[in-house]
């Protein structure tokens, strides 16, 4: 696989939350505003990048039997570091993301990439993979958050452009998260189905 492909596969084709259905909890919980989504995406990307880097470096040292506990310790360390940094330098973000920062530890994306990619591949590939998956996750968070914030709060990144009397409150509340994510996912799948069908038709025609 080419380096570019390793990086970009997480953006759309193997998008962790919209296609692989991983890391659903943060995708639903923190997407009440675009700012939160960016913060959460950045924190997760950092953890993915660093844990992939360290795990690919240590992959020959760590015995197979204890690899999961080792991965968990490494991931938890970086999550705690991110948590402390956010508390120290972006306190407002730490307040709005709350418990979901420490919960990056149990985000299936991070452990999943460590297990499926970083423990089998070289350092550079692992960094690219972590970065790509992190960016893909961030993109999907922003997508969901943008829809919810515009419809539910009438604003984008905190900038209000629809007066609050005309907002559809349900979209920032819990049910809205499920509905928006469901419809975005359905749309993504529909597009992918269309594209593959077209390709098939073309191939048939060429034959």
């Amino acid at each position: 696989m080419s380096k570019v492909k390793i990086l970009t596969k997480g953006f759309f084709k193997e998008n962790p939350s919209l296609i692989l259905v991983l890391g659903m909890c943060p995708t639903l919980a923190v997407t009440t505003s675009v700012n939160n989504a960016i913060g959460m995406g950045a924190a997760t990307t950092f953890v993915l990048l660093m844990s992939n880097l360290i795990i690919s470096l240590l992959k020959n040292v760590i015995p197979d039997k204890v690899r999961i506990p080792c991965f968990i310790v490494i991931i938890a360390t970086f999550v705690s570091i991110v948590d402390l940094i956010i508390q120290g330098f972006v306190p407002a973000l730490s307040e709005s993301l709350g418990v979901f920062i420490p919960l990056i530890v149990v985000n299936c994306i991070v452990l999943g990439r460590a297990e499926a990619f970083a423990s089998k591949n070289g350092v550079i590939d692992s960094i690219l993979d972590g970065l790509g998956m992190g960016i893909g996750f961030t993109i999907s968070l922003i997508l969901v958050a943008a829809v919810r914030e515009i419809l539910g709060a009438g604003s984008f990144m905190g900038f209000q452009f629809i007066p609050s009397d005309y907002n559809i409150l349900i979209f920032v509340l819990a049910p809205g998260a499920f509905l928006v994510l469901g419809f975005i996912m359905a749309l993504m799948r529909h597009i992918i189905n269309r594209v593959t069908e077209k390709r098939k038709n073309k191939m048939c025609a060429a034959k």
Binding site: V21, P175, L179, L181, G182, F183, M185, A186, R189, N193
Partner: peptide
């Protein structure tokens, strides 16, 4: 619809 099958329709149900 085909694109709705599986997780998407499950999420919408969860929303309701």
């Amino acid at each position: 619809p085909k694109g709705m099958k599986g997780v998407p329709i499950a999420l919408i149900t969860a929303g309701i």
